[in-house]
Simulated scan of single mutants.
Amino acid sequence: MNKLNIVADENIPLLQEFFGELGRIRTYPGRSICAAQVRDADVLLVRSVTAVGAELLDHSAVQFVGTCTIGTDHLDVDYLQRRAISWSSAPGCNARSVVEYVLSALARVKPDWLDAEFGIVGCGNVGGLLYRQLRALGLPCKCYDPLLTGQQNPDLASLEQVLAAPVICLHAPLTTTGPYPSWHLLDAQVLQQLRPGTVLISAGRGGVIDNQALKKVLQRRRDLTVVLDVWEPEPGIDIDLLQLVDLGSPHIAGYSFDGKVAGTALIYQALCRHLGRQPEITVEQLANPQQGALGEIKLPSGDRQALLNSAIIAAYDICEDDHNLRQLLSMTTGRPEYFDQLRKNYRQRREFSHYPVSGVPATTEGAAIARDLALLGFPVVGYF
């Protein structure tokens, strides 16, 4: 087989390990990949920050585009189909990472979240996993997703009903056309009507919330608690809005090492299908930190809520990401570049499954807590 010319976002992990045998790989910052760089490429591998359409590909030799992400709003799919360019995304690859981000946010801004009712907007791979985990914990949920049926999700409700919940989690893809566009779904009117004390967590796409409207609402309503991982626009986020939200992060909710590697693996498999060959490499075969447990989490004494929060924060504390992003507030220049540097140099965050938990009491209540921890993905020492 002739070796391929592959152009890739430099932030995609394990590129050489997965794709090295298929061709020559050139990497660039994803946000700055340009037409000249892909002109002689056969394969383009991206993440969510690269807009892929006519401007980038019109005069290129690209025959396959892979995005190592769940979302596809950065791909002009109609254009790719017209040009007969094969493409693939990585649905579900980082869903667990995003759900763990939401749980860490809850542990920090609403530590009594086990007593809350949840509204979830968008119940695809991410929102669907969050919904299943919350329901498994016995928590009431209402979901808005006009693309699903009651058979697929028995807790479907109207958008108005979902936005009346005390905790709202946004996981809708960003769409501007079709019967259910999500762009600015939460506009000034909707935001102003949120019930007092609402917790709003946005970890899908920034444009689902009208960010300028949100800023104006938060300037008047300090009863709202807001966590933003995604912004409008990125990377040049509104510094005044960052000052008003309770927790902020640079679009890294899905940035666990596990989730990113899963995305690379899915696109490698898709490219092999495109080439008509069998995949020869799996994640398990690679010699990297993907395998094995990390440090054991020893729980203190406490009730169900306190112990779950302790485990979550010990495995992943969102406050570190918030602290790093807030360095923007002291900068007068270079803010967009710093936002992207935080993403490029993001620490190797691992998912809950790599953190064994010990110290769960050997009581009837302890057994129930162990079950809850296992539902969230933690290995529990001494149980099961």
Rank of each mutant, 00 (worst) to 15 (best):
L159W: 10
A203N: 11
C169W: 14
L156R: 06
L170E: 13
D187Y: 09
E232C: 03
R222H: 15
E160K: 01
L214P: 01
Q152H: 10
Y180D: 09
L185D: 05
I237N: 02
G206I: 15
Q189W: 03
E234K: 08
Q151G: 12
E234H: 08
S158T: 15
N211D: 11
K216F: 08
I201E: 00
P181N: 08
G204K: 13
D240F: 13
K216R: 14
G150F: 11
L242T: 06
T175Y: 02
I239C: 04
V199Q: 12
P196F: 07
Q192H: 09
S202V: 13
Q152V: 01
Q219E: 04
A172G: 08
G150K: 15
Y180A: 03
S182D: 00
L218Y: 10
I239S: 10
R221Y: 12
L228S: 08
V226Y: 11
R205A: 05
A203S: 11
Q161H: 02
D223Q: 00
Q212I: 01
W231T: 01
H184Q: 12
P179S: 13
L159M: 12
L228W: 13
N211Q: 15
Q151T: 10
K215C: 04
T175H: 02
P154Q: 11
D240M: 13
A172Y: 07
S182Y: 08
P166F: 04
V226W: 12
G204Y: 14
K216S: 11
A157G: 03
L242G: 04
V199S: 00
V162C: 05
D210F: 14
A213S: 09
D155A: 11
L214S: 00
P196L: 09
G207E: 07
P154G: 06
Q192N: 08
V199F: 09
Y180T: 12
I239Y: 08
L218W: 12
P173V: 06
S158V: 08
L174N: 06
L242S: 04
V227F: 03
L214N: 00
L191F: 07
P235F: 09
R220I: 08
L159H: 02
D229Q: 14
D240W: 13
A172Q: 10
R205S: 01
D223P: 05
S182C: 03
S158G: 00
P166D: 14
Q219I: 05
Q189A: 06
P235D: 08
Q212N: 14
I201Y: 05
E160I: 02
T198Q: 10
S158Q: 01
K215W: 10
A165W: 05
V190C: 09
L224G: 07
V167E: 07
N211L: 00
S182Q: 12
P173Q: 02
V227H: 09
D240P: 12
Q161P: 03
S182F: 06
A213F: 06
D210G: 03
N211P: 04
P179V: 06
I168F: 05
D223C: 06
R220L: 13
K215Y: 11
L159Y: 14
Q161D: 15
V162G: 02
T225A: 02
R222T: 10
Q212C: 05
Y180E: 06
A164P: 00
K216A: 12
D155I: 08
V190E: 07
I237R: 06
L218H: 07
V208F: 00
G197I: 15
V226Q: 14
P233F: 05
Q219D: 05
E232S: 14
L242Y: 02
N153V: 15
T225K: 07
